[in-house]
Design a protein around this nucleic acid. Structure first.
Lengths: 337, 337
DNA sequence: GTGAAAGCGCTAACAC
DNA sequence: GTGTTAGCGCTTTCAC
């Protein structure tokens, strides 16, 4: 293995000069820099990550904790992870993948052994058991999602309340007066994941504000569920003409189910969703939707973390990304029957 | 930060004793071990990963390179990644996530800096440009998928040829005489990913062996594609009664399309697939399928890598997992019209 | 603008 | 069964 002393000897300088040439932490003469760079190239030198981490107390690795649980849309997690890795590389950092399953012990392990410099957590719950640990940890972290209190933490997510409102506002503008929210599976609410509840809040608040009749339905997304949900909605709200779907796997089956029940989308029923753009675009009937900006969230999360690592003290505790609604073929002005 | 010398002092032993107590690399008396463990617990000691890597030249980290490209089913990648992380943890290793995008330079970087001890690569192509690098690298690797020549490498995957055969065998047993393969998107074949071609080989060979009429159709999986494919199949092979689908996103839409064209599954048409069990089970008509065992492949890949890291020299170059076909509701005996 | 040298915290000979 | 100690390869003072 070629080491820094080899490079130094080859370039006729001291090891520290090589180190400084690499880090840019002190001025190096043009000529010296050139010689060092050439030596590095000729010898194919790569600094040893462990030695570097030991001497500098920086591993240049971030931990990313991904959820595994039911009710979480896998492509969103994956897109997010890829975005984190890509952005981190832009800051010369790598990403260590942890599963939620490892729990607090896993976080403590990678943080305390100095394997990672900082952490990104997905799928944060209202009363997430990891919160006290994160506050106590000597390493910065960023959470995707909002707990009950983000005091002393850094959180980022789509503004789900505003997203719920945006969907209803859109339906209201189109003249719809009876709307329903088809939400995430019940377990998502039960375990108090904030984003699901925020959508409900926004949905309900906007419906009330516009004077619309509204109802909320947490839904599973198994084989026959779409049909059952569609039937129930129509039974309970016969005048229903606007639906907001916040449940990725149910979106397409639900539209199919409505059509099989004789309702045209958007002729009889307007459907909007909160989901990744890809899903909304590729549906048989492209769906008007508020985008779930996984890639942007990942990018922003890394940026926040880098600021914290750089010692920036006024990094915002809460970052809410404004919803972006894209109109597609699934919504239309209400036709008076 | 509490270090090994702190623990040693607190336990009244030498640092090396603490180190050996931790690694088990030499016998420690019962009494000493107890004192060391207590000191570790009381002080909350965690060995510094970088220092360890430097002194032992082992980082206990594996690199996992995931693909991003079109035609790759995301949930499969994610399941695989989770399985790798979970299995690696069982061997006291962590996992660094790399994207295919980083290319050979990324592999070289993490290998040469000793950031990782070994590598796992997904989505290997027949003439993968990374092959020479992997052979040259001083660190062991395992590939998911098979290149044209696996000489000097370690590869593992589902036996896709046998999987294609198993599907046809099953259809043949049920009396079907005209079968079609609905394959992955054309770009998957163009870039010569071996698994897609192996399915075709197995499918064709088995069809020939059984004397069945057969045809192969690489397919996109966009919005209207299912319908178009269904129509084309029926046009070109009016006597078609058996279909093998090797294209996850197209599976359900395709069945829907067939039914909309007036064909009952499995009444008029039997459908089998090569896909994750979850997908096959949760379809509206549960699909007879050969499982894509992502979790098992991930687990086995890590195990192979651990054997190589342990110095085992007769690790098999090629591991082909035998297909497992599960009968579900989508296939039935051919009814003579 | 550059060099010398003292660690960073751990492992693994080598000694006993 | 345990202790001593010389590194592992790098960063970063301190000195010039």
């Amino acid at each position: 293995m070629v080491k820094i002393t080899d490079v130094a000897r080859h370039a006729g300088v001291s090891p520290s000069t090589v180190s400084y040439a690499l880090s840019g932490k002190r001025p190096i003469s043009e000529e010296t820099r050139r010689r060092v760079e050439e030596a590095i190239r000729e010898l194919g030198y790569r600094p040893h990550a462990g030695a570097r981490a030991l001497a500098s107390s920086k591993s240049n690795v971030l931990a990313l904790v991904v959820p595994l649980r039911a009710g979480i849309h896998v492509p969103v997690v994956m897109r997010f992870a890829v975005s984190v890795v890509t952005t981190a590389r832009g800051y010369d950092h790598d990403v260590l993948l942890l599963t939620q399953e490892e729990g607090e012990e896993g976080l403590r392990r990678v943080a305390d052994t100095a394997l990672v410099d900082a952490l990104i957590l997905m799928d944060v719950q209202l009363h997430d058991p990891r919160l006290p640990l994160l506050r106590a940890l000597e390493r910065p972290s960023v959470m995707i999602g909002f707990p009950a209190s983000s005091e002393g933490l850094t959180c980022i997510d789509l503004d789900f309340k505003a997203a719920g409102e945006a969907c209803v506002d859109h339906l209201a503008q189109l003249g719809h007066q009876v709307v329903a929210l088809v939400g995430s599976p019940p377990e998502v609410y039960v375990r108090q994941t904030a984003f699901a509840q925020r959508v409900v809040q926004g949905f309900t608040a906007a419906a009330d504000r516009h004077g619309l009749a509204s109802s909320v339905h947490p839904c599973e997304a198994g084989p026959g569920d779409a049909r059952r949900v569609a039937e129930r909605l129509l039974r309970e709200q016969p005048a229903l003409t606007g639906v907001v779907v916040h449940n990725e796997p149910l979106l397409e089956p639900l539209i199919d189910a409505f059509e099989k029940l004789g309702l045209r989308v958007p002729g009889d029923l307007s459907v909007t969703a909160i989901c990744p753009d890809e899903l909304a675009e590729s549906a048989r009937v492209p769906v008007t939707s508020v985008a779930l900006p996984s890639a942007e969230v990942g990018e922003r999360a890394v940026e926040l973390l880098m600021r914290k690592l750089a010692g920036d003290t006024d990094v915002p505790q809460a970052t809410l990304l404004a919803p972006r609604l894209t109109e597609r073929a699934s919504t239309a002005r209400r036709t008076i029957a």
